[in-house]
Amino acid sequence: MNVRRLAVFALSLALVASCRREQRELRRSPAAAARTGGIVRLSDLQPGQPSPDIIVRNLSEERAYDLSEGKRLYASYNCVGCHSHGGGGIGPPLMDSEWIYGSNPENIHDTIVEGRPNGMPSFGGKIPDYQIWEIAAYVRSLSGLAPTPAAPSRDDHMITRVAPQSKKEETPKEAQK
């Protein structure tokens, strides 16, 4: 009896413990692909009462499948062309602690959607919105800002970056806008 009770307990614990990490959405609703604009206000000045900042929790960061998709898209959409596999080149590196336009998920999302001066193209309308979140999640994982058990390990390519598992998490340093 004891054994059985123990087993039931262990099983329920295990089922509860199964988390967002393994979730996969295999059929996206077209709504998730809808084009959206930026989220973050670029100016602190607002007419009337200032409305509170929107805090975004990017669920894709916790999902291994989404992170892996983000990695694939990062290559497909040629982010690699400028940022390399995180080390930077024409564009700034993404695997260090320097963030010119903010390190929060919504900052990265907006950077991709709107583009930034001096070379970052605007991908708004060209990439479904959920994919932007996936790429944003992957970009954050490059500097160890996404949970490591979910983050993708090495690529099937020439080694170009340190796998997140063997990397220390870096505290983001925000450069001024």
Binding site: A14, L15, A17, S18, R21, E22, R24, A64, Y65, L67, S68, E69, P149, A150, P152, S153, R154, D155, D156
Partner: peptide
């Protein structure tokens, strides 16, 4: 818990490798 292995009982790489089999 819906994360059973899904690459076949002989788990050929690279399908079962880090690039194509995300998660645990």
């Amino acid at each position: 818990s819906n994360f059973g292995p899904d690459t076949g009982w002989f788990a050929y790489v690279p399908l079962s490798g880090p690039e194509y089999a995300p998660g645990k």
